[in-house]
Amino acid sequence: MSDNHLIKVTINGTKHTSSVEARMLLSDFIRHELGLTGTHVGCEHGVCGACTVILNGISVRSCLMFAVQVHGQQITTVEGMATKATDLHPLQEAFREAHGLQCGFCTPGILMSLIPFLDDNPSPSEEEIRAAISGNLCRCTGYQNIVNAVKLYLERDS
C-alpha cells in the first residue's frame, strides 16, 4: 500500500516539487531525494540532534517529521547558511577558528539549532548557549569549544 502525495516545498530558497510516499521521513527526503547530505542522520529517533533543520524559522528534528508535512513550507538546511556555496557563514567561521568541531558529524545540527536561537536571543549567557545545544550530541569536543565558538561569533558580531 503506497500512499503518495505531491508536495511543494522551499528549501534554502529553491522551490521543489516532488511526489513522496507518506511514510518518507523529512530527513530522508532532504538527503536522498534532494541530495542535500549536509543534514546528517544519527539516531533517527529524535535524541542526537544531527538531523536538525530550520522549519519556518524554528529548529526541528527532520527525522521526526514526514516530508508530506512540509508541503507549502520553508526549510533551511546547513547548505543554506552562507550566501554562496563556497563561503562560510560567520558562525561557521567561528566554529572553524575556535575548534568547535572535530569529526563534524554533529555540526550541521548544532548550527541549525543555534541560528534560530541566536536570532531570538542575540546576547545569551553561557548557560543559555548550553541549554540551546543540550539536544545535540557531540562525542568529540566535550562542548567546550562549541561554546567558545559561539562566544567568538558573538564578540565579532557585536
Partner: peptide, 11 residues
C-alpha cells in the same frame, strides 16, 4: 524506509 506504510490524511 523506516516506518511501515500508512494512509495519510491532513484534514
Amino acid at each position: 524506509m523506516k516506518p511501515a506504510s500508512f494512509k495519510y490524511y491532513a484534514p
